[in-house]
Design a protein around this nucleic acid. Structure first.
Lengths: 360, 360
DNA sequence: ATGAAAGCGCTAACAA
DNA sequence: TTGTTAGCGCTTTCAT
């Protein structure tokens, strides 16, 4: 039944009455072998159920033919995703009627990476891990691939540096900071500017609150947020800090604001997750969105369309980010000496209901 | 800058002043080496930026430490997904405000596979391809992993048979048919029965049309559909055949039904995709769902919650299917002689609006 | 057009 | 506790 050991080139060669080199050639350079020989080899391979070992092939060639994506398990990654974890646990066994968590932007980027990898003849190795095991996990997958894509801020610089000495590594979203990595970023500033101008010009909003976890990515958004306010001579409020996934924290902050009676015209959130939490909190407090206060997000995850009111946001071209990452990596693999590339992709304002625009 | 060749065990061994075996031990069986030695090795490795080669490791060990998922690109896989392809092409460059296609059930299963693989210490190799290249692609990834998961009906039996002689292979959704594969299925019959009884008992529907592509999976659903009708002494209609993703075909069929004036009480669709197309067609024809006719799906994809009216359907435990598949495979890897397993998972009726149940 | 043979980097007996 | 050494299965010169 279950054969313990699969056939190798040696078996195929013996059965076809040729040498192992010929077997190898028959597969990799068919034109270099006589037709009759090639057929004999192919027949033997088929008869034996030959499946080439990628390990052996990779070892001999020095390349694996696979790309890697270190797709951290964000549920086990974020320090305070307990609530989400419970939701997921429930969803595994019960009918999952709450789809808010899926897919997040990570999933959409991944899909782009997959499609582009396949169409370029690469297999995709996906690695994962929680924060504790991330170094081991990422090193493991790095050893399996010819090029690696990582999500922003998931891996210590020291580790990516070591890996990028061996294979090209591309970090998503994060702007380059003299690391030895390739980058695919989005034009956060422009997106935020479009959004703010819509809010100020169309809705006449004047008083804003920015909800965010401070990091390099949201920093660019916050700076653009500020710049627009300054340009319009409006008051620049401090950031309301929160942490993504930490419903408790964001909710608490919003509740505090509510208590103080200092409701702004609009909550501008650094990403959709925050925005969803804010909307939920407001709803729970009996505050109507967008009638009493507007809320906006940033990212354009699917969930933004599920909620009511639907979420006005700035959409990143997630699938394109994934595809672009692969493109860059494949080039870098074939030209190891080429300079690092950093490519910026455009974003698009998506006007829905939560800013106060009418239902369509 | 870009180092051409990464350091190997030999380099680490030399730098640490030990043999390559010791380096290997220091990593794989830390307790078997003296503390001072292990530290010397680890330091050397760190200093050199050592990244173990999975190819070499895999070759030597006979196992790769990775699981495989052959996740066909369904857009290039289905013969008639031209419309969907165009949608996706647009979505890549433009703001994707039509999320109907994402995620489909495949994505949710994949997520389950990923999470379970990671938590069990396996990396996940994802392969893909269109129908033309599927044999080569699946063989390629089979050579890279210790166990393989495939989606139903994507790979010819002959090919899976060859692969399963080498590593355990698990097919999703499809019931076993004497292939040498492991299986994870769902209880389609029970789900359809629950659904039909709801439609008959609660809504008093009597006249049904079943919309489906005929295949083994939907066959089970159609059989259960028929059985329930017979049990209730109701007329058993013929299947209205369509093809998934082929909006044109399903739409045409529905239009024909509309023209003949023979509208049923309810369109029971073999899956959600069909149901969404049916609803769209009815809407375009000015027929109100669920007021004039009800529609139901099967699968429970996220999109079913996006549409209006929301889709009544039967939800499969997609993530659990993925996790279960990994669990079975990991067991099979450690016990190559154990018998093939086929595990059936329960489904859940999800009552929403399209059957006529009130908005909640 | 084909074969012989030298590795690719690592693991795992077996020795020491 | 550590070192020696023989592969793991395949690719790739270099001969023939």
């Amino acid at each position: 039944m279950a054969v313990v050991k699969g056939p190798t080139v040696y078996d195929v060669a013996e059965r076809a009455g040729v040498s192992i080199a010929t077997v190898s050639f028959a597969f990799s350079q068919p034109h270099r072998v006589k037709d009759s020989t090639r057929n004999a080899v192919l027949d033997a391979a088929r008869a034996l159920g030959y499946v080439p070992s990628a390990s052996a092939r990779g070892l001999a060639r020095g390349r694996t033919g696979a790309l890697g994506l270190f797709s951290f398990d964000f549920l086990n990654f974020l320090p305070d995703a307990e609530g989400m974890k419970k939701d997921r646990a429930a969803a595994v066994v019960a009918p999952n009627d709450d789809c808010r968590l899926f897919p997040v932007w990570v999933d959409e980027v991944q899909r782009g990476v997959e499609l582009e990898s396949f169409s370029r003849g690469y297999a995709l190795m996906i690695g994962g891990g929680n924060r504790a095991s991330s170094e081991r996990a990422v090193t493991d997958i790095a050893g399996r691939v010819d090029g690696l894509i990582i999500f922003p801020r998931t891996i210590p610089d020291e580790v990516t540096r070591r890996i990028s000495a061996r294979i090209p590594v591309l970090e998503l979203s994060e702007p380059s900071h003299g690391d030895g990595l390739h980058h695919v970023t989005v034009d956060n500033a422009s997106g935020m500017r479009q959004l703010m101008e819509h809010l100020i010009d169309v809705h006449q909003f004047r008083k804003f609150v920015f909800v965010s976890i401070p990091n390099v990515e949201t920093e660019a958004r916050y700076e653009a947020f500020n710049a627009v306010l300054r340009d319009h001579g409006l008051e620049v409020p401090p950031v309301v800090e929160s942490r993504p996934g930490a419903s408790g924290v964001t909710a608490e902050l919003v509740t505090k604001l509510l208590g103080s009676g200092a409701l702004p015209d609009c909550f501008v959130c650094a990403n959709d997750e925050e925005a969803l939490v804010v909307m939920e909190t407001l709803k729970a407090a009996g505050v109507s969105v967008p009638d009493q206060v507007a809320v906006t997000g940033f990212d354009g995850v699917v969930a933004g369309r599920l909620v009511s009111p639907t979420l006005t946001t700035v959409r990143q071209p997630m699938e394109l980010m994934g595809r672009t990452a692969v493109e860059i990596l494949v080039d870098a693999i074939s030209q190891p000496l080429a300079p690092l590339v950093e490519r910026q992709l455009p974003v698009h304002l998506v006007v829905r209901e939560s800013c106060g625009c009418a239902k369509t």
